[in-house]
Amino acid sequence: MGKIKSLFSGRLTASMLSLWSILIVLFIITGLVDHYFFTIPSIGVTFQLAVPLGLLAAGQTICMLTGGIDLSIAMIATGAAFIVSIKSPSGLGMAIFYATLYCILIGAINGLAVGLLGMNPLIMTLGMNAVLIGVFTVGITTFLKGSSTMPDIIIKLSTASIIDPISWPLVLWILIGGFVLYLLKQTGLGRLIYAVGDNAKAARLAGIRVWKVQLTAYILCALLGGLAGLMIGGQSGAVAMSLADSLVLPSVAAVVIGGTSIMGGMGGYTGSIMGTLILTVLSYLLATLNSSEAVKQMIYGAIVLALAWTYSKLTEKS
C-alpha cells in the first residue's frame, strides 16, 4: 500500500527534480559544445567512465549516511587493484579472494575504530590512508613485488562494450547499484544505517548495537571501494600508487551534491548516482572546453560548492 512510495517525501522528489534539471542542462551544453558527445558510443564511454566514481560514491554514501566518511577509500581501491594484479598469476579466484580479504580487513579496522573506540572518522580514515600509502610504497619493492598489469578479464569487465551504449561496467554498476538501493530502502540494515546517522544515541536507546551497524557500513564501503579500484585498474590497464587518488574528493562531492547530509541520516544512493553523472558530464565538458587543468579545477570546485550550497538552502526552507 504505497509503502515504496512512502519512502520518498515530497521534498526529496523536488530536489531530485533539480538534480535532473542540472544534469540535463549540463548534458545539453556539453552536446552543443562537442557534437560528438551526442553519439551513442560517446554516451557509452561516458557511462563507462562514471562507473568507478559511482561505485566509490556508493560506499561513501553508506558511510556518510551513518554520519561517517571514508577518506581511506583511495588506498583501499588502489590496494585491491595492486593485490589482484600481483596475485593474478596464481589464479583470478585467489587474487579476488585476497583483495576481498584486504578490503574487509581495512573496512573492519576503520569500522571498529569509529564504532567501538569512538574515533573521529575523518582522522581515522585519513590516518589509515597514510598508513596504507606507506605499506604499499614499501610493499611494491618488497613483499608485493610482481606484475602490475590487470588480468584480461577485469580489463574486459571494466571496458568492453556489449551493445553501445551498454557496456560490461555499466551492467555491473546497474547490478551493484540496484543492490545498494535495495539494501538502503528495503532491508533492516538500511533502516539502521539511516537511524544511526540521524541519531546514534536514540538508536542505542532503541536497543540497536550501533557499532555493529558502523562496522558493517565501513566494510561495505571498503568492498565497494575495492571493486571500484579493480574497475579503475582495468580501465587504465595497469596499477600505480596514485590510481584512485583523484577520485576520492569527487566521491565525497558526488554524495554531497546528491543530497546526502555529511551529518548522516538523510539522503540516499539515487542522489549520489545523479551526483556521479553530473560530475562525470562536467569533467567531460571541462575536457572538451580545451581549458587548462587550472581552469578545470577551479570550475569543478566552484560548481561542487554551488551545488552543495543550493542543496542546503533547498532543504533548509521546508
Partner: peptide, 8 residues
C-alpha cells in the same frame, strides 16, 4: 571544494 578552487 575550495581546495579545488585554490589549487586551480
Amino acid at each position: 571544494a575550495t581546495s579545488f578552487i585554490l589549487i586551480g
